[in-house]
Amino acid sequence: MSVKTRAIRKIDAVKVPSDDKRWLIVAAAMRKHGSAQSALIETLHSVQSSFGYLDDIALAFVAHSLRIPLSKVYGVATFYSHFRLKPQGKHNCVICMGTACYIKGSVKLLQKVDQKYGLKVGNTTSDNQFSLLEARCLGACGIAPAGIFDGRVLGNLSPALVESQLDSWLKESTANETKSPS
């Protein structure tokens, strides 16, 4: 039997998967919606905002708690591009690839990130420093090309600007490392 199946079989609906406090937030989100099957998407949102991504354990727990078949939960989680099944980097860079941003050269931004950091959309740097994502349209087309850096929308981006933002994350992490060698 695969490791995956073994892990999934350990999960039931009664107990939260671990004593991690974040599960209480998830459980509360389910209760708020009456633990109904229709609460699935809202619940997945709460798992992702608490844990950063959805793993098999979380999916199995949500499925059992809301009494929804496993495959259906997996189907929903993979249908919506907002949900991530893999852990994300410490920092998060989203580049808009909507029409307005595309016309204003957002492809060049992605090329820059690939060139300098060897990172393609959907991936995370090997040291887990940051993930690169693309978005459809941030609704900030007036200041295209736009992106989101750790939750902050920035507009009128240039390759140099993206580079300096990403470099500042890297610098901050090397600074932290020298402070606390582990």
Binding site: G98, R136, C137, G139, C141
Partner: peptide
């Protein structure tokens, strides 16, 4: 839902 890329009227 305003999914059209390049449209942000509804957001506004």
């Amino acid at each position: 839902d305003e999914g059209d890329p390049g449209a942000f009227m509804n957001r506004s």
